[in-house]
Structure formats: C-alpha cells, structure tokens
C-alpha cells in the first residue's frame, strides 16, 4: 500500500484555519463556561431549596445527555423557541458553553467540598468574621484546588469541540473530512487530523497531571 502525505502541504492553509476555528470555539466556551459555572456552583451550594434544585437539575441534565444531542437541540430547536435566526456559529458557541458551565460548576463544587472542616475551625478560633473567612481563606483554597479539574475540562471541551463539524462548522474535524472526501485519501488526511488534535491534547493532558502533583503538595498542609 502506498501512502502519500505530500499533498497535505497544499492544504496546510485550510487546515490551519480549521484549527484556529476549533481553538476559537474552545476559548469562548471555556471563558463563558467559567462565568456560568461559577454562578451555577453558587446555586448548587445555596441553602435556597429552589435555587439548589434548579442548578442541580441543570447540571445533571447536561452531564447526563450526549453533547451531540445538546448541540442538535440548540441548533434546531432554540431558534424555533426564541423565534429568531441563530447563526450556526452562535448555536455551537451556546451549546458548548452551556455544557462547559455544567462541568465547570462541578469542579468548583468539588473543590469547595474538599476543603477540610478543620480550616473552618481555625477561622472560628481566630475570630475571623464570615466575610473574611470566605474571601481570604475558603475561596482562594477552592480556586487552587479547582485548577487541575478546570484544566482537564479544557481538554474535554477541546475534544468535544469536534462535534461542531456535525452542524457544518468549518473546524479542524470538518475541514479534514472535507479534504478526505475531495482527494479520496482518507488515511493520510484523517491520520494527520488526529495527530494535530493529539499534538495539542497531549501536552494539555500532561499539564493537568503536572499541575495536580504540584498543587496537591501545596494544599496539603
């Protein structure tokens, strides 16, 4: 069997643009997901029953259904609901961000829960008012502890972002499949695409374990 990777050079520009689109989707979904996830985690730790259940249902639903279904739902149904046209780009961004928010809120919540009860004892023993306790003791520790999970969420979103190709967004996946169809050389092109994803996904995953090891040492006092 002959492999011919030389033709790939011809398409490097298109692939590059596809990759940028992918990264753009991921970047926006991560940032919006951080904000939305923080709001959701407040709801999930709230003592208000209504808020708690609303946030919990939301998070469980988005974690309990395929992202592909969510994407199609936003893409096909949301415009009907809202009665306005949504571009494919906007739909895909909304879908990824809603999902990102759900997994981000879980990271925040787990981080909050992992703080040892004795830290609260120490705050009382030092007579720290509630506000000081939250802002200077609990929140910074929660943020530190959430970092590894937040990073691994970025990896997840990076991988899930390939789904936007299914609704016609010209991301790396979409561009790759298109070229593969046009030149009838699926092995070379699909392998190349996989390697590009890997070249970004692998260092990110490594970074997660590195950061995790470092942080564990710090927060374990």
């Amino acid at each position: 069997m002959d492999f011919d990777f030389s033709f790939l050079a011809e398409y490097s520009g298109v692939l590059w643009r596809g990759l940028l689109t992918t990264l753009q989707f991921v970047g926006i979904a991560v940032v919006l997901g951080l904000v939305w996830g923080f709001v959701l985690s407040l709801g999930r730790t709230s003592s208000n029953k209504g808020l708690y259940w609303l946030a919990t249902l939301y998070v469980e639903f988005f974690r309990g259904t395929p992202v592909l279904v969510q994407l199609f739902w936003i893409f096909f149904c949301l415009p009907l609901f809202l009665g306005v046209e949504l571009s494919g780009f906007i739909s895909a961004v909304i879908a990824l961000s809603l999902y990102s928010g759900a997994i981000t809120s879980e990271s925040f919540r787990a981080a909050l829960k992992s703080i040892d009860a004795s830290q609260f004892d120490a705050c009382i023993a030092l007579g720290l008012p509630q506000g000081v306790q939250t802002v200077f003791v609990i929140l910074p520790q929660a943020m530190l502890r959430a970092i590894p999970n937040l990073l691994s969420n970025v990896v997840s979103l990076f991988k899930e972002s390939a789904l936007v190709s299914a609704v016609g967004m010209a991301d790396l996946m979409y561009v790759g499949q298109n070229i593969a169809n046009n030149v009838a050389r699926p092995i070379e092109i699909l392998t190349a695409i996989a390697l590009i994803y890997f070249a970004i996904g692998f260092p990110l995953t490594r970074a997660v374990s590195l950061v995790e090891g470092r942080l564990l040492k710090v927060v374990k006092a």
């Binding site: 004795s118 030092l126 007579g127 720290l128 000081v132 200077f136 530190l144 006092a221």
Partner: peptide
C-alpha cells in the same frame, strides 16, 4: 496545625489581626 495552606507563614500570622 490547621495552617492556611495558600498563605505564607507571615500571611498566616497577619490575617486575623489585619482583617478582623
């Protein structure tokens, strides 16, 4: 111990006097 892990030794000592 229950030291605050995200604060330096000095930070641990000064938190309560300064903030409360």
């Amino acid at each position: 111990y229950t030291l605050f892990p995200h604060l330096s030794v000095l930070g641990n000592l000064c938190l309560a006097p300064v903030r409360s």
